[in-house]
């Protein structure tokens, strides 16, 4: 069963100083986690996203008119910073991998969502 782990970081500026001072080991934690996911044979896909200030939003109205806007900017406390899709037997295993993810620490959180399966 496939689950998406949506990795939310605490809002920028919250404790940047702490992150900067630990950035070396923080980066190493992510490398280790990424390696562990791939070596466990459960990795389906995953990306880390560029800074939210680079985001652009597209909406299409009823008459087909396209609206492009800068943003969105973080209105909520937490910002989606990346994701993994993993293939594991059940929710308990998915929750274990979410808890191991460095993104679940230091004010961040990981939302675990099953990927919908459609019968063909």
């Amino acid at each position: 069963m496939k689950y998406m782990l949506l990795i939310h970081s605490g809002a920028a500026g919250d404790d940047t100083s702490a992150i900067e001072s630990e950035s070396e080991s923080f980066f190493q934690d992510w490398l280790n986690y990424d390696k562990a996911v791939k070596e466990a044979g459960i990795w389906v896909s995953g990306h880390s996203l560029a800074d939210l200030t680079t985001a652009t939003t597209v909406r299409v109205g009823p008459a087909g008119e396209r609206t492009v806007t800068d943003g969105p900017f973080a209105e909520t406390r937490e910002v989606l910073g990346g994701y993994y899709v993993i293939d594991v037997p059940d929710l308990d295993v998915a929750l274990d991998w979410a808890a191991r993810c460095p993104g679940s620490r230091g004010g961040g959180s990981v939302v675990v969502r099953p990927v919908a399966e459609f019968e063909v």
């Binding site: 069963m1 037997p89 059940d90 929710l91 308990d92 099953p114």
Partner: peptide
Amino acid sequence: REARIPFRVP
């Protein structure tokens, strides 16, 4: 059912 919470004893 859909999030597949397992039936197991921890």
